[in-house]
Nucleic acid binder design. Sequence first.
DNA 1: GGTAGATTGAGACTGAGTCTCATCCTACGG
DNA 2: CCGTAGGATGAGACTCAGTCTCAATCTACC
Lengths: 132, 132
Amino acid sequence: MDEPSTTLRPTRQRRAINEALQGAADFQSAQDIHDTLRRAGEKVGLATVYRTLQAMAEAGQVDVLQGPGGESSYRQCSTEHHHHLVCRSCGRTVEVTGPAVESWADAVAREHDFAEVSHSLELFGICADCRT
Amino acid sequence: MDEPSTTLRPTRQRRAINEALQGAADFQSAQDIHDTLRRAGEKVGLATVYRTLQAMAEAGQVDVLQGPGGESSYRQCSTEHHHHLVCRSCGRTVEVTGPAVESWADAVAREHDFAEVSHSLELFGICADCRT
DNA sequence: GGTAGATTGAGACTGAGTCTCATCCTACGG
DNA sequence: CCGTAGGATGAGACTCAGTCTCAATCTACC
Ligand SMILES: [Zn+2]
Ligand SMILES: [Zn+2]
Ligand SMILES: [Zn+2]
Ligand SMILES: [Zn+2]
């Protein structure tokens, strides 16, 4: 089920992507990050940005948020399980946890006899600042 | 915020799409539905399928599920607010409700002063049948 | 029947994301 | 210190869901 521990080398590109991620507070698409890097003078291929971001997501180093257009955005988050409250207008993101939700999900899964159950849960709204 | 009540006419194409939806138990992509119709002899343009499905989704007549690849799938569901438990293997779908989740979402939104808060929540797992 | 306006569909187009493959770079052993 | 194996990179072709255009067609209604 898991790869033979491919060595994942620390390259200039990966470092750059990692830094771009650290410097951002909210979710950013691969293209956003690519642009940021280009503007910062770092030459990194778009394919590399996609590959790296995906790898980091699989490794649990970043969170992925599926935007409305199906576009994936990435963010450096806390490592513990959590969800997000995102402003539809400015993208401001707040990490939230919901123990009640977690146990509810477990119960539902058990009740319907589903295994390996995961869940996706995100909240979208308009933050106080964006309401003028 | 809403359209000037455009008349939404019942055409052959819309009827066909509606029937295809009724005949399916699980979520189907626009392309799936288009294929089904073509095979059934109904000639309906792909653009029309997309347009109709979107319109129905906006009107709350069908539910939309964002697949992993960002692909949207549609399903005829109950009209009351609910979520889905979907089998990753065969697509079997169960509608579930979680009052606890709803109130939790409200509380979180209030706590962080976000308005017009909506949420997306889906559960994915492997159903009993698919586990042999 | 006649007309305004909604609807349709073939095909061009968009844009996110993936693939290819020749080249580059890192890690590591001698 | 090299030298090499195999991971990493990137330009550009490519895929594919979904959107747009616009002339032709269909509906509702008088
Ligand atoms: Zn997060
Ligand atoms: Zn905001
Ligand atoms: Zn199943
Ligand atoms: Zn809900």
